[in-house]
Design a protein around this nucleic acid. Structure first.
Ligand SMILES: [Zn+2]
Ligand SMILES: [Zn+2]
Ligand SMILES: [Zn+2]
Ligand SMILES: [Zn+2]
Lengths: 137, 137
DNA sequence: CTTGACCTTAGTGTGTACTCTAAGGTTTAT
DNA sequence: ATAAACCTTAGAGTACACACTAAGGTCAAG
């Protein structure tokens, strides 16, 4: 399968596929005489692995690690795989916590402001940001 | 106050201050004869506004908008300020939702894996990512 | 046999918020 | 007078995941 068809089957761009190849995430097994990439069923499976891993939040660098494990499963342990997953989960949890604080602060700010058409001279959002913290610890 | 002292009072780097100046977030009022930046009390207040706005999650571009409103309050409405705040809050909420899905999927994956020292040949994390989705809708 | 759709490469641009570097001028203390 | 510690600028580098460009080769249809 040439890159165009492969890309549209997977819903990604050809640029993305070339990018993945450059970064050693997916290298099509064969090239045609003309030098065109020729993707196989195996490549399709691997690309779906990549897309699923992306869907659960893994970065491309992390996916690369997972692929290396997948290629040589017997050289790696469950422990290793679970560690990657848990590390990622905890990182995500940290980011959620930060964003939740943002969300809380923004809600407090928004609730203080009347949102009317009058000039912002006394807008509580602005005065709160100007004055000493009514938001943080 | 010269940039070094100003920076350390605020807990930011001098690079950051020069970056903010370049991006029109904070331009110190005066320069000394030697061309050194000379920060005033007003600059200090403005920098604290910027840092507080950062602390609630606004990006530098958004803070720039807020500052422009703050400079000419009578030319802007509460409505405008509240809109910025609510838009940001909703964007943050969207990102939280996405990360929460990631977190959920990663938890499911992690729970499936024994995490032991044995080879990853039958690791459920890998097989789940290989096989047809047991994660997504 | 030519048009148009496809493919190739290498390289640049995007957005965010800095951080670092090079090459040089200024101030303060000894 | 000289060294240390500060300051200046412009510009490049970082991470992430691509998107886009130019300049050119290939393939199927009419
Ligand atoms: Zn109001
Ligand atoms: Zn208001
Ligand atoms: Zn196991
Ligand atoms: Zn496992």
């Amino acid at each position: 399968m040439k890159i165009g068809e492969f890309a549209s089957q997977l819903g990604v761009s050809t640029d993305t596929l070339r990018y993945y190849e450059k970064h050693a995430l997916l290298t099509p097994s064969v090239r045609t005489q003309a030098g065109y990439r020729d993707y196989s069923q195996t490549d399709l499976k691997q690309m779906m692995f990549i897309l699923r891993a992306k869907n659960v939040g893994f970065s491309l660098a992390e996916i690369k690690e997972l692929l290396q494990i997948k290629f040589k499963k017997h050289q790696h342990s469950c422990h290793e795989v679970k560690n990657l997953t848990i590390q990622k989960r905890d990182l995500v949890a940290g980011r959620i916590a930060e964003l939740t604080r943002f969300h809380q602060s923004l809600s407090v700010l928004a609730d203080k402001c009347c949102g009317g058409q009058e000039p912002a001279d006394n807008c509580s959002i602005l005065t709160t940001l100007e004055d000493i913290d009514g938001l943080n610890q």
